[in-house]
Design a protein around this nucleic acid. Structure first.
Length: 263
DNA sequence: ATTGTGGCCTGCCCGC
DNA sequence: TGCGGGCAGGCCACAA
């Protein structure tokens, strides 16, 4: 599913359109538009505007104009296309087909066309999204910021990583990969992590996200393909365990991600 | 304030 | 062969 990694790739696809002008907007499915105003109001607000820049905070893609900023969220199955070219071949948990009926939004510009295909409509488009509520982006989060996000909480550490208000950009697959690499059990109360563990977690958040960007997908981690019944830890061969943590399906290695605090 | 839960939305896959 | 149930999870509304 689109996590920070996919959305960053989408942003890079959209970046060449900066400088172009929006010539027309087709809200194919009005359910895709969130926030105040109707689909018609959305189209009217950005038609004729010049695209002035792209940005990304966590999983939120921002396209600035000389008017309102366009915010795009991709949910779990959303894919961005530019000029009819899908940048990503397939999404984990997303259908591999490319049914034209799943296109929910189309923005035509003087330099090319941008569209969002989202079968389940879990994504959305919104004007001038509230970005203040998002936590620091996982690609650049500092050790101090992560420590603040974790401190004093009884929530499972995984739930804390998934909370976009605390850390922006980490989704279910990245969270499992990070905790696996950091040798921290996902259900550990966040506030129970030692200072050493928090620093270790911070290093792994930053390095894992960078690594997954290099690999080109949040599903391309070292343990991701073992997140299935019968899957084993790539490091020590221990059968991975599965449970719901923070409301999400969670896989971890019971041997090297132990419940008790370590070191 | 924090923390947890259910609903949205639909394609896909398994078992009958 | 068709059908129903379960599952996937990002995000938001809502409850305690």
């Amino acid at each position: 599913m689109p996590e920070l990694v996919e959305v960053e790739l989408y942003r890079r696809m959209a970046a060449p359109l900066v400088g172009a002008t929006v010539s027309s907007v087709d809200v194919v499915d009005p359910r895709f538009i969130r926030g105040a105003g109707s689909a018609a109001a959305f189209a009217k607000a950005i038609t004729g505007r010049a695209l002035t820049g792209t940005d990304r905070i966590g999983k939120l893609l921002l396209m600035h104009t000389d008017g309102p900023t366009i915010g795009l969220r991709f949910g779990m199955t959303g894919v961005l296309g530019v000029d009819g070219d899908d940048g990503l071949d397939e999404l984990v948990y997303g259908p591999s087909r490319r049914d034209p009926a799943w296109v929910r939004l189309r923005i035509v510009t003087t330099s090319g066309e941008l569209f969002v295909r989202d079968p389940r409509i879990l994504g959305s488009a919104i004007l001038d999204p509230d970005t203040a509520a998002l936590g620091p982006d996982a690609t650049t989060i500092t050790a101090g910021q992560l420590a603040a996000a974790v401190r004093g909480s009884r929530s499972p550490i995984k739930a804390r990583l998934l909370d976009q208000h605390r850390v922006a950009g980490v989704g279910n697959l990245i969270a499992d990969e990070v905790l696996w690499r950091a040798s921290i059990a996902p259900q550990r109360p966040a506030g129970s992590l030692s200072a050493v563990e928090v620093r270790r977690l911070h290093r792994h958040v930053r390095s894992t996200v960078a690594d997954l960007l290099d690999r080109g997908g949040s599903h391309l981690g070292r343990m991701t393909d073992q997140r299935k019944p019968g899957g084993c830890c790539p490091t020590d061969g221990t059968p991975l365990q599965r449970a719901t943590v923070g409301g999400r399906t969670t896989w971890w290695c019971p041997a090297h991600q132990r419940q008790g605090a370590r070191r």
